[in-house]
Design a protein around this nucleic acid. Sequence first.
DNA 1: ATTAGCACTCAAGTGTACCGAGTGCTAACG
DNA 2: CGTTAGCACTCGGTACACTTGAGTGCTAAT
Lengths: 334, 334
Amino acid sequence: MLDERKAAILRAVVEEYIATAEPVGSATVARASELAVSPATIRNEMAGLERDGYLTHPHTSAGRIPTDKGYRFFVDNMAPTGNLQPGQRAAVRDFFNRAHGALEQMLHDTSQLLSGLTDYAAVVVGPPHEAATIRSVHLVGLAPKVALLVAVLSNGVVEKRAVELADDVTETRIAAASSHLAQHLTGSALGSLVAPPSIGDVVTDGVVGAAFGGLASGDHSDETDHVFVGGASRMAAAFDTVESVRHVLATLEQQFVVVTLLRDVLDRGLSVAIGAETGLEPLAECSVVVAPYEVEGELAGTIGVLGPTRMNYPQALAAVAVVSQRLGRHLTEG
Amino acid sequence: MLDERKAAILRAVVEEYIATAEPVGSATVARASELAVSPATIRNEMAGLERDGYLTHPHTSAGRIPTDKGYRFFVDNMAPTGNLQPGQRAAVRDFFNRAHGALEQMLHDTSQLLSGLTDYAAVVVGPPHEAATIRSVHLVGLAPKVALLVAVLSNGVVEKRAVELADDVTETRIAAASSHLAQHLTGSALGSLVAPPSIGDVVTDGVVGAAFGGLASGDHSDETDHVFVGGASRMAAAFDTVESVRHVLATLEQQFVVVTLLRDVLDRGLSVAIGAETGLEPLAECSVVVAPYEVEGELAGTIGVLGPTRMNYPQALAAVAVVSQRLGRHLTEG
DNA sequence: ATTAGCACTCAAGTGTACCGAGTGCTAACG
DNA sequence: CGTTAGCACTCGGTACACTTGAGTGCTAAT
């Protein structure tokens, strides 16, 4: 553990570097920190911090910049749990008061909100579907050989699956299958479906089977369906080479990877992953701040912010905390 | 109009610049073009081309690069309507044979495909909803004061709208409203809906009205709902400053702008918009290649590719043409 | 009309010198 | 003994001069 003064110096370096993106030298620290000591003393201490792996040196005659470990210490031991600026607080409140309807739109807009608050990219992962129960199921014929299964879930999500039909299934058979499905599936959780019993008619049974299979099998692809990434362009500004931007963008485009990342971080009991801690090569220069949100007391989903390792952690933590909380409350009530 | 030789030289410059991204000089053109003339002659001609606005000069001792006008001429008069590479042809065929079900998933995947073919960003705009007819409508109660209206359209799209209810509308009233809506709206086009007649019960009528209002009013936001942008990270590689990338990204994130852009270009009867022709400031360094696709003979939607002005037009045109055609055919059949 | 020849331009690369920010070390200080 | 002033040292950045070479535009010869 670091002694009092080393910690203060580290904090000063981190805060300064976050603000300016330039290596910070002993003089700057002496000025910025509350410590009434000379730059020389600061230098000695910084040498120690470097030996212990909290700081680095781009080159001999430059100031210090934090390492991942340095950021980690900063976040764990002294992130001031910043508050949002009053204007931002108001923006969040406004946003959630102007309650929009559909869940998916809501999550999408939330990712925009969060990105706007932080000026980084924001990710919002919707509630998993397995837990939700089915409120209604309908099978609708579309074309001669294809029908669409539409299920409305208790959380407001609408799941749809195309169902391939054998040749010339009549409208009435589809209707029969539809009501049979509705009768047996309504009320059960998507994660634990049991196949409806046979109805006697072999054609209808086939339709029911196909439709049911679509619903049950689709589960694994669920996660992919409701991830919303907002403001990717904002985080571009935080990097200085096109290559870095491309790597990060490419990663953000893989929804599955993003979802996994957030879940991983949460599973490890963290709320921040810094640089290599993300476990993803292309995100080596990035940090992620995550928070779960709860609906009706149950863990429902995750939100997160992705920015450069030198992101404004206090601000990002505050934004994520506030938004996750309000989002959860909003979804619980509405 | 350009004489034979000038055209050949312009073509050589454009093709070379597209390939190398470096200003091309008279010697290179003399080597690359079929013309059996000396660099000096080429120089004279290039000076003419520059005077006429087809080429520019980054600086005195550099080669020439095409202007927007130069690209325009190239595209209009001699884009070789390139063919896809055999491997890519096969990839497209494979893609459309492995027909996935739901329309939206399909469009999303198509944007990925197109982006993969061209290595630029791809945009796919789905069919407008107004033309589609309603195949089925259901109103599903979600929470005490909120229900969800779900409409399945003939093109396979599922529209959903949250409907706010007055206090304590009973399940049976919702059911009544649902079947009343189904009875009167099924079969009509989303663009020309007429309000269902009163049913006698004032509460139920209220629910019906609210639901109907949601459907009818939502039209304008339709376009936003089904634009799919794929491979934005790919086009990052084509630019050399982070700023450029950010501008383009930010534009691509505004779905409405993207849709409008594609429609505008098509409305002007173009299939390519180059640089300033896009009409969008942040896309000054970009070109867009678009094509409509038809479902059952009717114009249904648009696809497009967005890349740098020095994009590989023949390739992009070929890719867009093939994909739009196969997409249309696929949607018509399936 | 074409082209060889040539003077000219200018970006990019190279070497040198210098500045200055910042360090690490040492010796003095309280 | 911790702190600090002083100082030599390091090294990236900038400025400048110089060279190189790609490429042009013009002119005069073919």
